[in-house]
């Protein structure tokens, strides 16, 4: 029991350090005018975020974050930079309104965390609604040993199909945009 307490304390320290890194990386990505550097910093952000998810025991989310946040997003950002410019222009006036909107939204979210159940609370509503049913019946009904996979691929199969359709459409849109831009540049011989 004592050992478990100690481990929890260590995890909290690691969380604090990782969150500090995240804030520093985010600020640097916003403040730097070199967009290539910003894109790379966002890649770092994705990796750190994924490490944080692993510490929080959300391994599935960490997988997604590492693949999408650190991998694909960086590549897409680089493609976008290749089609536009590598340096960000200085805004003509400081974006106070955007800063205010971000602060209000962030404050509301921080305020909302006060209403959340404690981390790892077994009595939380999310764990008492349908989760016990899934855990009890997933293996018999679907034959999939991993409950998360069973829920995503079987119980919410249509939901996942819809998500895949959305992602496919978005991917096609991005490909069309990038493909058209590259062709135009080739035809124009560099504008």
């Amino acid at each position: 029991m004592d050992r478990k307490e100690g481990r929890r304390a260590i995890e909290i320290y690691i969380n604090i350090v990782l969150l500090f890194f995240l804030v520093a990386t985010g600020l640097a990505a916003v403040l730097l005018r070199n967009l290539l550097a910003s894109a790379m910093l966002l890649g770092i952000y994705g990796l750190l975020m994924a490490a944080l998810w692993v510490v929080l025991d959300a391994v599935d989310v960490a997988f997604t974050e590492a693949a999408v946040g650190a991998g694909i997003t960086t590549v897409l950002m680089l493609l976008a930079i290749a089609l536009t410019e590598r340096h960000e222009k200085r805004p003509s006036r400081p974006p106070y309104l955007a800063l205010l909107a971000a602060l209000v939204t962030g404050g509301a979210l921080v305020y909302a965390t006060g209403g959340m159940p404690a981390f790892g609370d077994a009595a939380a509503p999310a764990h008492r609604h349908v989760a016990p049913e899934y855990i009890a019946r997933a293996l018999d009904e679907t034959g999939v040993p991993n409950v998360v996979t069973a829920v995503l691929a079987s119980y919410r199969g249509f939901d996942t199909l819809g998500e895949v359709t959305v992602i496919f459409t978005a991917g096609m849109g991005v490909l069309l945009l990038i493909g058209v831009g590259a062709r135009r540049r080739k035809e124009g011989g560099g504008s």
């Binding site: 990796l47 590492a66 650190a70």
Partner: peptide, 11 residues
């Protein structure tokens, strides 16, 4: 998981 990260990092 760390193996997957190594792959993504490379890409």
């Amino acid at each position: 998981i760390s193996l997957l990260y190594a792959l993504i990092n490379f890409v």
